Computed example of a mutant assay.
Amino acid sequence: MRDLTPLPLQPADVPWPTQRWPEGGRRPDGLATLADEIFGLPETQSVSYALLVIHRGRLVYERYAAGANRGYLQYSWSMAKSVTHALVGILVGQGRLDITAPAPVPEWQGDARAEITLDQLLRMSSGLEFAEDYYDGGASDVIPMLFGEGRFDTGTYAADKPLAHPPDSVWSYSSGTTNIICRILRDVIGNGPSGMLDFMHEELFDPLGMRTPTPRFDRSGTFVGSSFLLATPQDFARFGLWYLRDGFWEGRQRLPEGWVDYARTPTHLDSANGYGAHFWIDPDNPERFYCSGYDGQRILMAPTQDLVIVRCGRTPEGHAPAVFDRVNAIVDLGW
């Protein structure tokens, strides 16, 4: 494991945002200008619904537009993958899952896929065939999984894919991988969607004060953790702060020791992308790690600056730099 920037502790004089976000704190020069630029981009390039900045545990900036407000639920899209990482971590801490063991997937018994581990699934290194294309319905696996023939049992659709590479030899981002994990979670937790909802609330959402998360399930009872979780930006920010605080919240370590470091340790890192375990890593600033979703959803954690930034909106991939260059510039202000 490479050297990682230490994660900051919650300041002793700042209450945890379980009930409400503590507000205030200094806003550095340039923050308002960069936010104006983000919200002022032409609609043909980007529409921003929400921008929140958390510094040292306080909500120092919050802005909404395009009809959104504090109570408006936003789509996570693939930010839900990072929530799936947290659910796995909780079960690991309870001794109910071992990520180093072969993944319990019945379809894989008796062939080479039986060697795939949960660790490899979390790091997108299973070797399974899966085309992560959001536009070409003919070439895509993610479109039929979410909206076509696979939508009723997303985990089985993905688990049926053959190996394209030996396990742990190639990194390949795959929404199918996450739904295989979520089918495993369904079976370990039991009692279908109601059991999963109870577990999510009792072990994750309620302790953090996240009151709005709305996960979606397929007909098989599997949480579609690749893509479908709605929540307010303030609740997304609570999740980000929890990871910035190393899984600690209000006097209790709620994730296993080292679980957040596992998420932010690179599996794949090149000039274009960085990825750990169900979290992305900024290749230009590898200490920064983030949850990312289609159309430009993001929860960014910056340990050195003790920042969490949440951005929700609608931005085509080709225009994403216009938003996220400015989000990164916010991190680089004189905090």
Rank of each mutant, 00 (worst) to 15 (best):
G138H: 12
G190V: 10
E129S: 13
L31T: 02
G334N: 15
Y49W: 12
L7W: 04
G93E: 08
V53I: 14
Q74D: 06
L244P: 01
A68K: 08
S174M: 12
E250P: 03
D119A: 09
R113A: 09
P256Q: 09
G240I: 08
R20T: 10
L146I: 11
A35K: 05
D13H: 11
E203V: 03
P207K: 07
G148A: 12
D325V: 05
T18F: 04
N328Q: 09
L146V: 10
D168Q: 13
P106S: 02
H268N: 07
S175I: 06
F324V: 09
T265A: 02
L230M: 10
L163P: 10
E62F: 11
R288N: 15
T18P: 02
T33H: 07
Y135S: 13
G138C: 04
V327T: 11
W77A: 04
P8F: 03
E129N: 06
V310D: 00
L229Q: 00
I309G: 00
T214H: 12
R96V: 04
R216Y: 07
A86Y: 00
A114G: 08
T33M: 06
L87S: 09
T18K: 02
G110S: 11
V331M: 08
V170T: 13
L244N: 01
V92M: 11
R264F: 07
D111L: 10
V331L: 09
R219D: 14
G40E: 08
L146E: 15
R2V: 11
P283Q: 09
V260P: 01
S126K: 08
S140E: 08
I309F: 00
A164G: 12
G209Y: 03
R219G: 02
A32T: 12
R20C: 05
I184D: 00
D206E: 15
T222P: 01
P8M: 09
E129Q: 14
S220D: 13
R216A: 10
Q10D: 12
D136V: 06
I299A: 01
E317T: 10
D246E: 12
S76I: 04
T222Q: 00
G127F: 02
A159S: 13
R20V: 08
Q10K: 10
F289H: 01
T44A: 15
L185N: 01
A302P: 00
D153E: 13
P215S: 08
T5F: 04
A80D: 02
S78V: 05
P303A: 07
D295G: 00
R211A: 15
R264N: 04
Y262L: 14
R26I: 10
M196I: 13
V260C: 04
T18V: 10
D111K: 11
D306V: 01
Y173K: 02
A32W: 03
A131V: 12
E23W: 04
P102T: 04
C291G: 14
V323Q: 02
L241D: 00
P215G: 05
P256C: 10
F289W: 05
H319N: 15
E62G: 07
T304Y: 06
P286A: 11
A114T: 06
T18R: 06
F147V: 11
I54M: 09
P167G: 07
T177C: 12
W242Y: 15
G313S: 07
T214Y: 12
L255K: 07
L9K: 08
C182Q: 03
L118A: 04
S220I: 04
M210G: 04
